Computed example of a mutant assay.
Amino acid sequence: MQSHAHRIFGLALAALAVLSVAGSIMSDPRSIAAPAVSAASQTTELAALSERLQAHVRKLAGEIGERNVFHPQALRAAADYLRAQWASQGYQVVSQSYEAYRVRSENLEVTLAGASRPGEIIVIGAHYDSVSGSPGANDNASGVAALLELSRALAQAQPVKLARTVRFVAFVNEESPFFDRGEMGSMVYAKAARARGDNIRLMVSLEMLGYYSDAPGSQRYPPLFGFFYPDRANFIGFVSNFASRRPLREWVQAFRSHSDFPAESLATFEFVPGVAWSDHLPFWREGYPALMVTDTAFYRYAPYHSRRDTPDQLNYPAMARVVMGLQAALTTMASRPDRSR
């Protein structure tokens, strides 16, 4: 428990964080309700995408269930499912294998090579393990489902060639007891990438994308942030540290130019609770720009890290709209003219 002095100091730091970004917040207070008028083709595409996302989440969090080193058979089953899905999309799957708690653990990677600037890499990642005691539907089968559907969409868009290389990576061992430790899958991956000299222009972490609500008061924040953001959990969030604020701004602009789904963004200090709590953190540590896409996790989602984090909790039509917007943003960012970070 924090002392009174520590609480005051924490509030002061939170105030500083808010004031440092308040002038650059991009707000988009629209409803998550589907557009009143929509092209029939887009409606059909969204419905099909929603069904596929739900099928992925039900497989991982329903049929397979809790998946981590304490349930190694389930962890292997999740990896095998990812491998099979990517193989069916036409990818060659690369495994980065290591041991954690004497359990074989795998980061899985597939790649679309860039045409004109293949040495410039965008990494899209999501962790497929779940925390102990939870089936992990939102955390993070939702992120993995989005990862699989983004890779599917870009594979089907070929032979349209992207300028930059895109890597889709499913990370293992993001959850406790591995977070921010050497056995964390994304830390193993980021260290290896730095050692190889990979020119990663941006890493995007997909972390909990499935829960939305238009109810007043459904969204919470760290102290003082609520003065600048909506109180309804009806948006998708884009979050980065200050060093990554330029690509953050570009990604949000690309998302909004192709999607009417509400979006909020924040570039702030890494110590703000939740800002660094995913697979983008190891990339920051290795000097790579990175951001997180999230529904804000425990700031809106009551079943966070519990047995109640089940597939029936998620809003798949809203999630499909988010993923479709991310697909367009990714295509835009991977095709844009060269520029410095």
Rank of each mutant, 00 (worst) to 15 (best):
T310M: 07
Y211G: 00
G114I: 11
L314T: 02
R341K: 10
P317W: 05
D180G: 08
P135D: 09
I122A: 01
Y128S: 04
F255E: 08
R220S: 15
D309V: 03
V204A: 02
A14C: 11
G210L: 03
G274Y: 08
N173L: 04
F168T: 03
M208T: 10
E183H: 15
L11V: 09
A192D: 12
D80Y: 07
S340D: 10
E183N: 15
R104D: 14
A215I: 10
P72F: 07
S340Q: 11
Q85G: 02
A193E: 15
Y98R: 02
A267S: 13
I122R: 00
E45K: 09
V18Q: 02
S95V: 11
L266V: 09
S151H: 03
I236L: 09
E250D: 14
A48P: 05
I32A: 06
S335N: 13
A192T: 09
S257W: 05
R76M: 07
R256N: 08
Q2N: 08
V272Y: 01
A243D: 13
S151R: 03
E207S: 06
S27R: 14
Q92L: 15
Y101Q: 14
L46S: 10
A113V: 12
P35Q: 08
R83H: 11
S38M: 11
S97L: 09
R7N: 07
Q158R: 15
L46E: 12
L202V: 15
S50A: 15
L16K: 09
Q89D: 14
P303S: 09
I8M: 10
N140W: 03
R164C: 00
T268A: 08
D80E: 14
A47P: 11
D28C: 08
A5I: 12
P289D: 11
Y189K: 00
V252N: 00
V169F: 08
P222C: 06
A36H: 13
A153F: 05
G23V: 08
I8Q: 11
K161Y: 08
A40H: 11
A33L: 10
A153M: 05
Y91K: 05
S257I: 02
Q156W: 09
G65D: 07
V275N: 15
Q158E: 15
A297Q: 03
V94S: 13
